[in-house]
């Protein structure tokens, strides 16, 4: 009896991610959700610029590679014209909380009925470890070489808390994938975020605290611990919003408005 195997919605190809980078875990959880809800055939994934820009190689559903920060807008274009499709974005913190902040806020304000998988690893990974909006105070990166100083580089953004204030946001939960129990909880949240979309509840976002061993300058195992000791205290896990917005967007020709 198979207890654990590669989900079908995950393409049988190796990931390009660094050793120990937990992007791979989250990819698997998303694919498991697509399998379990049997929505891979309906799904359209949008991955913008960032370490996950190659996500179009990793999922078996239709995929779009979007401009940096613009995945929520691209997703809106897909969802509004094809409301029966299950549309999800898979974005990093530099993407969602820096250049794409307007798109992030307004996709929430509009209550777009899509699912956002948001990877928060406190850094810009693909470009080699620069400070991100989520970089912790005091955290050293290539563009905060003396540690992030709030007086100069401002303070981190708590995305789940911010988005939970928007009426159009139905579900916002922050999870982590640094331990097996946390991964199991993250899985539940991701499945719920997709189920919400099926039930047309409004915008669902799962913020996943994730690691970046290479740019944090840590071993994979130490990186998982750093999530526990430094990230989670700053970014508390939990559900920040869980409602049914019932904001059925007037979408396509079928539904009119």
């Amino acid at each position: 009896m198979v207890v654990f195997d590669r989900p079908k919605s995950l393409s049988p190809v190796p990931f390009h991610y660094c050793p120990g980078c937990t992007h791979g875990i989250v990819h698997r959880l998303v694919a498991e959700a697509l399998d379990e809800l049997d929505i891979c055939g309906k799904a359209v994934g949008i991955a913008p610029v960032g370490c996950s820009v190659f996500a179009y190689n990793y999922f078996e559903c239709d995929m779009i590679e979007a401009a940096h920060g613009r995945a929520p807008a691209v997703a809106t274009g897909v969802k509004r014209t094809h409301p029966d499709n299950i549309v999800f974005t898979y974005q990093g913190d530099g993407d969602l909380a820096a250049i794409g902040t307007a798109e992030t806020v307004h996709v929430g304000a509009r209550g777009e009925n899509i699912t956002i998988i948001f990877i928060n690893n406190c850094i810009y990974g693909m470009t080699g470890g620069q400070m991100a909006p989520t970089t912790l105070p005091g955290q050293v990166t290539t563009t905060s070489p003396y540690g992030r100083d709030r007086r100069i580089q401002g303070s981190p953004i708590h995305v789940c808390e911010m988005l939970s204030t928007l009426d159009g946001v139905a579900y916002a939960e922050r999870v982590a994938v640094n331990t097996v129990p946390n991964i199991k909880k993250a899985k539940k949240a991701i499945v719920k975020a997709f189920q919400n979309q099926i039930d047309k509840k409004g915008l669902s976002i799962v913020e996943v605290l994730s690691t970046c061993p290479t740019n944090w300058g840590m071993t994979p195992e130490a990186a998982l611990k750093w999530v526990e000791t430094d990230m989670i205290p700053f970014y508390p896990l939990g559900v920040y919003k869980d409602t049914d917005v019932k904001l059925l967007n007037p979408t396509s020709t079928k539904e009119g408005n």
């Binding site: 613009r70 807008a73 691209v74 997703a75 274009g77 897909v78 509004r80 014209t81």
Partner: peptide
């Protein structure tokens, strides 16, 4: 910017 990217999504579909 968002509008042209919405167009990209709609066009892609």
């Amino acid at each position: 910017i968002s509008a042209i990217n919405m167009v990209m999504g709609a066009a892609a579909s």
